[in-house]
Amino acid sequence: MVDDPAPTSYVAADIVILTISGGEFRVLLIERGKAPFAGRLALPGGFLEDDETVDDAAARELFEETGFAVGESLLERVGVYSEPDRDPRRRVVSVAYAALVPGPPPTRAGGDAAETAWLPVDEALKEPLAFDHSRILGDAVAHARRHLEYTTAATAFCPKEFTIAELRRVYEIVWRTSLDPGNFHRKVTRIEGFLVPTEETTTRNGGRPAALYTAGPLKWLPLPLSPAH
């Protein structure tokens, strides 16, 4: 009996971890400490372990980089990247994910990473990232912006309890636009299942007390929100 040949290709999970901090849409990038592309910025990621699904690997990478479990953030597949020459070491097929996290935790380097940092998305999109990570980043950012139109994903960028103004600011930052406060308030509070009032208020942003909400059970919006309105 002939032994099975060694695998000629490997599977990896790469993660575009997105957050909002300091009024900017940001992504977590690592500076690679090893060849190939030593010293270049890249997305976090890693190879599949023997006992993992690719979703398991993505969840593990997310937790290792941020401390967030999947239930504490939004983790979604963006696409599969399988060009034969995308990794100069060997044939690697990558399943890419976008993770939306509510506020950036402290960064921590490890593995192939020399340093990690949260960069503004627009700045990161101009960087010559390692491998094909510039393409993956662009696809993930477009996915996130589009997803905010059709789903309640914007709440993943918010703390557990948030105001309507804080939620609106998420849309404005991700979409790079301004939204009419009154219009936005009417729209989101009329969508059943989008928001759940806590019956509490806060003055953390100054001004009059503002009502606090939590994310409701709704995932897909009955009608899309639009950055044009």
Rank of each mutant, 00 (worst) to 15 (best):
E49G: 13
L48H: 07
L148R: 06
A69W: 14
V95S: 10
G39E: 02
I173H: 07
A211P: 08
P197R: 05
A113R: 01
P36D: 06
S226F: 04
L62P: 03
K160V: 14
L41M: 09
L29T: 03
V70D: 07
F63C: 13
D50R: 15
Y10A: 12
G67I: 05
R190G: 13
V170C: 06
I173D: 08
T163L: 02
R186L: 12
E161V: 08
E64Y: 14
I173K: 09
E192C: 09
R40S: 12
I15P: 07
G216F: 00
F194K: 07
R145T: 06
R135V: 10
A211G: 10
F184T: 05
T19A: 06
T8E: 12
V27K: 02
G216D: 00
V174S: 04
P105L: 00
V2L: 14
I15W: 06
A38Y: 09
V170T: 09
F37N: 11
P104C: 08
P181K: 02
S73F: 07
A59V: 05
G45K: 00
R91L: 15
Y81N: 12
F25N: 02
V174P: 05
L129F: 01
A69D: 14
A140T: 03
S9V: 15
L148T: 02
A142N: 11
G39T: 02
P224S: 02
D112H: 11
F162L: 01
E172N: 07
F157N: 04
H147V: 15
A96E: 06
L62S: 03
T155W: 04
P159I: 03
R26P: 06
L74K: 08
A109Q: 04
D56E: 01
I17V: 10
K126I: 13
L28P: 05
S82D: 14
V16W: 10
E115K: 13
G71H: 12
V80D: 13
W175S: 01
P159A: 08
F63R: 12
I20C: 06
E83D: 15
D87W: 07
S134T: 11
V92Q: 05
R176N: 14
L29P: 04
V11E: 13
F63D: 10
D122V: 11
P104L: 07
D112E: 15
F68N: 05
L100G: 11
P5V: 03
L29Y: 08
A98G: 09
P159V: 03
T151H: 09
E65W: 07
P102W: 03
I191R: 04
F68E: 03
A156L: 04
F68H: 08
P209D: 03
R77K: 15
P106W: 03
L212I: 01
I191C: 03
T155F: 04
A42T: 12
A99P: 10
G45C: 04
I173R: 08
D4T: 15
P84M: 10
N205S: 09
G182L: 08
H133S: 04
R91W: 14
R32F: 02
G71D: 11
I136S: 05
R32A: 03
L74C: 12
I30S: 10
L167C: 09
P222M: 07
D180Q: 10
V95T: 12
H147M: 15
F162T: 00
P159Q: 09
A211F: 06
